[in-house]
Design a binder for these strands. Structure first.
Length: 598
RNA sequence: GACUCCGUAGCUCAGUUGGAUAGAGCAACUGCCUUCUAAGCAGUAGGUCAAGCGUUCGAAUCGCUUCGGGGUCACCA
């Protein structure tokens, strides 16, 4: 039985016996004891002073005494400071916890989700240009939250809704037609997505040129922006695409195929994956039947010009268009359609959308509409809204060429990892392939950790120099801790030291370093719950860093192989195993791998 | 303008269901590699938690006001 729960039960019993205060054990709040006081868990008594009509110190003392006699096999001592009752567990309890809990294969598996299906939609790129830094945050967050939801007992379907149609794709296509002279990714020696992106930039350049010359000929800038011939051509091309024009369609398929090949390579390289792909070219016409449905229900209303609207003023929102007067879809129409499609395909009542916070309003509206339509999946919609990634030079803008390309960034990180590793001569005994894999693990680990350690909701700063730092609060430093432990475990195996204690043996006294690490390990399931409930990979990232940091303190202070007490030695091997497992499992929740050697 | 998110050390961030003396990392400075990997550890210095008022046993955390920054308010996606 979990000692934290036993303690809560005992406190609840104590409150009742001593003060006739009835509280459910689950609702009792315990927090980790502050470092400067003795103890593992702290019960704050202030909330009960009114009912108990005694001073905080007196209440704390009486509850403490009660617990001590109630569960003497768990508690070593208690102390009361002001209104804080600090509980010191017996060292042998931690030993017991280590063997029966922390080392268990499923220690990090929470079952609260009960196998319920959840769809996590993330990545969702446009096919007119390659992935950039902002996409990386999205992809890492999406993958990580999928892992975290799985760890919470949900059955997760990872989906990618590819935006493969629209005016922006036509821009790339048109520029390719004009200036491409038939080059291909092979002939250009470029990844397909980068090649297509090149023409997207080319389009923009041409467009600017045309606008300038129009302005020079005396046309107002506003008008020139609308009248530029190349823009008109792109719009015409989109129309042709929608009419199924063979030539346009073929070009579209060819160029998209290039992009997909490029994306797949990138996805593989950054270690994210999907269970299902949706393509907007298949879904952009959906949603019209839902509009019809809404009209029938009286949720939507049709105006004279034929456009369809929903009035959300009662909800504190606005009037919102859901279908244009010409009968074509807008963004939200499509999203209504795909929400329905997702539900039909997988039956997920819960659906997580990993989408930037500039779309907060859109998702509030979407959720409201689904609710009004009485959709069974309306309440399960969650917009995992994350902040922009800023550069020291300011906001990233594709058109102004201030984006950081995802592929370039990853290779730079890997290259830096290689340099650092070679500098330190740490690849002795590695084959070339193993070394390459290590550089990738470290470089990518650094990048993922850097992007995931920050609260997703917050806008964050990407400082290129800091992100390639491998020391301190970084992924590689955690990976390094894992590699160190692995070295110990290898040596223990060589020496034939087991991690099991002889039958009937236990350890009565641990050192403070061991205890504070074990305290941390005990919080892992709670942290997983927290991360799941808050949709916050950063909770896990910061927790794992704490574990690694605390273990490192133990590592420099306490020797394992020089320990003469064989029982203690075995215990410490088990201890190392549990820490390694926690770090590994935690990092995998972030999508970060850990190396056995580095 | 309306709505919304944010403001914590020089920098990047934790901490926010109200709890003890607000914590890390980087950068700066001092130490520690003949003992399990120094991508580590120990230490020094660095704070009016944007400002003010309020709520109460207690506020970085809740409320109001002000200042500063971002985002959204398209028959674009």
């Amino acid at each position: 039985m979990n000692p934290e729960f036993l303690l809560k039960e005992s406190i609840a019993k104590g409150l009742e016996k001593e003060f006739s205060i009835i509280v459910a054990p689950e609702s009792i709040l315990l927090e980790p004891t502050r470092k400067d006081f003795e103890g593992s868990l702290t019960f704050v008594v202030f909330p009960y002073i009114k009912q108990a009509k005694l001073s905080p110190e007196q209440i704390g003392a009486r509850i403490g005494e009660f617990c001590k006699t109630d569960i003497p096999n768990i508690i070593a001592s208690v102390n009361v400071v002001k209104g804080f009752l600090n509980i010191v567990f017996k060292d042998s309890l931690w030993v017991d916890q280590l063997y029966t809990n922390f080392l268990r294969e499923d220690f990090a598996q929470v079952t609260d989700g009960k196998g319920e299906k959840v769809m996590v939609e993330y990545s969702s790129p446009n096919t007119n240009k390659p992935l950039h830094l902002g996409h990386l945050r999205n992809n890492f967050l999406g993958y990580s939250i999928s892992q975290i939801l799985k760890a919470n007992g949900f059955d997760v379907v990872k989906a990618n809704l590819v935006n493969d149609r629209g005016i922006h794709i036509c821009k790339s296509m048109l520029a390719y037609q004009k200036f491409g002279s038939g080059e291909t990714p092979q002939s250009a020696g470029m990844k397909g997505d980068h090649l297509v992106g090149k023409y997207y930039v080319a389009f923009d350049k041409e467009l600017k040129k045309e606008i300038e010359s129009l302005v020079a000929s005396g046309i107002a800038e506003e008008q020139a922006k609308k009248d530029a011939p190349i823009l008109k051509e792109a719009q015409a091309m989109l129309l042709k695409w929608e009419q199924g024009d063979k030539e346009v369609y073929q070009l579209w398929e060819t160029m998209n195929a290039w992009v997909y090949e490029g994306f797949n390579e990138s996805y593989k390289n950054i270690g994210v994956s999907f269970d299902h792909f949706y393509y907007e070219s298949n879904t952009y016409l959906l949603g019209k039947d839902i509009v019809e449905e809404g009209l029938q229900m009286g949720v939507f209303n049709k105006r004279e010009d034929g456009s369809v609207w929903i009035d959300l003023t009662a909800e504190g929102l606005d009037q919102k268009l859901v279908l244009r007067s010409d009968g074509t879809s807008v963004y939200i129409t499509q999203d209504l359609g795909t929400a329905e499609l997702k539900f039909k395909d997988f039956g997920c009542k819960r659906s997580v959308y990993v989408v930037g916070n500039e779309q907060d309003y859109h998702f509030v509206v979407l959720a409201q509409i689904l609710k009004k339509l009485n959709k069974p999946y309306a309440d399960g919609l969650y917009h995992m809204s994350y902040g922009m990634v800023d550069l020291p030079s300011g906001k990233m803008k594709s058109r102004e060429g201030t984006v950081v390309d995802a592929d370039d960034l990853v290779s730079e990180m890997v290259e830096t990892a290689k340099l650092r590793t070679l500098e330190q001569g740490k690849t002795d005994g590695f084959t070339g392939e193993q070394a390459q894999k290590l550089y990738h693990t470290i470089g990518l680990g650094a990048l993922k950790y850097y992007l995931l350690k920050v609260d997703p909701k917050k806008r964050m700063m990407f400082n290129p120099e800091e992100s390639i730092d491998f020391q301190g609060h970084t992924g590689p430093s955690i990976q390094y801790t894992y590699a160190r432990i692995s070295a110990i475990l290898r040596k223990a195996a060589e020496l034939g030291i087991t991690s099991d204690l002889p039958k009937g043996e236990t350890i009565e006294t641990l050192n403070p370093f061991e205890i504070s690490v074990l305290e941390l390990l005990s919080r892992f399931p709670t942290k997983i719950r927290e991360a799941g409930a808050e949709y916050s990979p950063s909770t896990i990232a910061n927790y794992i860093f704490e574990v690694a940091k605390e273990f490192n303190r133990f590592y420099v202070e306490v020797s394992i192989f020089q320990e003469t007490d064989e029982i203690k030695k075995s215990f410490r091997i088990a201890f190392c195993k549990a820490v390694a497992k926690t770090i590994k499992d935690g990092m995998l929740l972030l999508g970060i791998e850990v190396p056995e050697k580095m």
